[in-house]
């Protein structure tokens, strides 16, 4: 077995119904897993960007790259992992704050992660934290000890550094 690597693909596609199903079907049909997925319109409304994290050995990654390219609705595929890139994800965490003491503590921890409070109720609050995978994992691990009620994340988005696109 060759070593498995994590890869992050940026896929520009036609903004049409059915395109995501084709991309997803390519993975499910071959037994490849999608670890994270984000889809949204770009500044050009006719084009959507899919950011997709997957893993596999070099041969599987190459296959994924070529098969993505082969889809008729795919305009461009970039394997961002082959170059220096920035990666971000946003997570919303709802935490129980039954006593004021605990709430203060949670707010202090949130500060460390540059989290923002975006909703506060007597018994709970919602935090928004942005970062790369390592930072989000650290934050989630800590907040887990306070009891996470609900968690939602966007999936990763990423971009190459510098002027090229």
């Amino acid at each position: 077995m060759n070593p498995e690597e994590r890869h992050i693909f940026s896929v520009l596609v036609e903004n049409r119904f059915g395109v995501l199903a084709r991309v997803a079907g390519l993975f499910s049909g071959r037994g490849f897993n999608i670890d994270s997925l984000n889809v949204a319109e770009t500044h050009d409304r006719s084009i959507s960007q899919i950011t997709l994290v997957t893993h596999g050995d070099a041969q599987i990654i190459e296959q994924i790259y070529h098969h993505l390219n082969r889809l008729i609705d795919v305009i461009e595929v970039t394997d961002l992992s082959t170059d220096t890139h920035v990666e971000r994800e946003l997570v919303l965490i709802k935490i129980a704050t039954d006593d004021p003491q605990k709430r203060t503590e949670i707010l202090q921890v949130a500060e460390v992660f540059r989290g923002r409070v975006i909703d506060m109720k007597p018994a709970s609050l919602v935090l928004e934290i942005t970062g790369d995978e390592g930072k989000l994992k650290a934050a989630i691990d800590i907040f887990n000890t306070y009891g996470i009620l609900e968690l939602a994340r966007t999936g990763k988005i990423a971009m190459l550094r510098g002027a090229e696109s």
Binding site: Q59, E62, Q63, H66, N69, R70
Partner: peptide, 8 residues
């Protein structure tokens, strides 16, 4: 003609 065929 099909890049995905090569090295598969």
């Amino acid at each position: 003609i099909d890049a995905s065929c090569i090295g598969k």
